[in-house]
């Protein structure tokens, strides 16, 4: 684990990418027997998820450090129809300096950045430009996000165009119907094609877990996407009615653990949507630490897909420094 500790102080342009430090997941042949044997007991998973926040608690300077860590794991995101270049530049500026410098000084922490900025294809170039000179990668949602129902060729083309536009990371959406109909071969082929289209950019597979119906499906889809070479698996687009939840997260990261045990490849995890409180971020960090270990607390293996989380963390950090509860307007908006 020591090989990654330098993340804390010096982040380089591509630090967040898993392939920099670890052998990239090359995937494997689709193993349908393995997929068929996957079990996920919903009640038990829910119980574990429900008790975890009570089992782990991080206080005082530990909490501040953990929250600072959480900031470095955020894919600061804007995915709205009314995004403009100005809006994206403002977001990028926030990504460069997510926390007021005086607070970081008081905490004894060096400058931080978020893990990435996440935008639609059309905003890649402006984001790349706005982040020039920083270490922050640009992630683009792709493949007909969020529904993933545009023509397949166009979805592949979209990836290629986004990579060409400078995106370091591509967040693809899978075809939910392949999961819902148990067509694992189709899911595998689709994912594999997407991965190939990404080239050197790393690929996050969005499962849209809120639309997969069962945790068993979530577990199987996670596994198939990893078999097809996903670098990250991600819960949601943020547009489904249910997005990241702890039970879904537990199911997916257990799949990550199983995949590593079988293949040796470490695959990253990104919960997205619905994580808006500092307290929630701490629970997610402890979940990763408990189930996968400290290695998954670094931006190359863990990201939060979030937009409003940062604001709450900033307020908590100020509270830690001053002892007084903070207000939103005391921190620069994204």
């Amino acid at each position: 684990m020591t090989d990654t500790l330098h993340h804390a102080t010096t982040t380089t342009a591509t630090d967040q990418l898993p392939q920099v430090h670890l052998p990239r997941n090359t995937g494997m042949e689709l193993d349908l027997d393995w997929v068929a044997s996957v079990q996920a007991n919903t009640s038990a998973i829910e119980r574990r998820a429900a008790t975890l926040p009570g089992r782990r608690s991080v206080k005082k300077s530990y909490q501040a450090a953990w929250l600072a860590k959480a900031i470095t794991l955020i894919d600061l995101t804007t995915l709205a129809g009314d995004d403009t270049e100005g809006r994206v530049r403002r977001l990028c500026a926030k990504a460069r300096q997510p926390v007021r410098a005086d607070l970081l000084d008081a905490l004894g922490l060096p400058p931080l950045t978020t893990g990435a900025v996440c935008v639609y294809h059309d905003m890649i170039e402006v984001a790349v430009e706005a982040l020039e000179g920083t270490n922050i990668p640009v992630a683009a949602v792709s493949t007909g996000f969020p529904a993933g129902l545009s023509p397949f060729e166009l979805r592949v083309k979209e990836i290629e165009m986004s990579v060409a536009a400078g995106a370091d990371e591509i967040d693809i959406v899978i075809s939910r119907r392949h999961v819902l109909t148990g067509n694992w071969q189709a899911l595998y082929d689709e994912m594999k094609t997407f991965r190939e289209a990404c080239g050197e950019a790393h690929v996050k597979a969005i499962l849209a877990t809120g639309e997969l119906g069962t945790l068993r499906n979530v577990a199987k889809a996670s596994l198939v996407c990893m078999m097809a070479g996903a670098d990250f698996i991600k819960t949601s687009t943020g547009k489904e009615s249910v997005n990241a939840t702890l039970p879904v997260s537990l199911t997916m990261i257990r799949a990550i653990r199983a995949f590593e045990a079988r293949t040796g490849y470490k695959v990253g995890y990104k919960p997205a949507g619905g994580i808006s409180k500092a307290k929630d971020a701490l629970v997610y960090l402890s979940l990763m630490k408990e189930e996968l270990g400290n290695r998954w607390l670094q931006p190359d293996l863990f990201r939060f897909g979030a937009s409003s989380l940062l604001g709450d963390i900033e307020r908590q950090l100020e509270h830690h420094v001053t002892g007084a509860y903070s207000a939103g307007w005391r921190h620069p908006m994204a």
């Binding site: 206080k59 300077s61 600072a68 860590k69 400290n294």
Partner: peptide
């Protein structure tokens, strides 16, 4: 200190 905890990510 906070910096060290940031690196070790211990619970405390």
């Amino acid at each position: 200190n906070t910096q060290e905890i940031f690196e070790t990510m211990d619970y405390g």
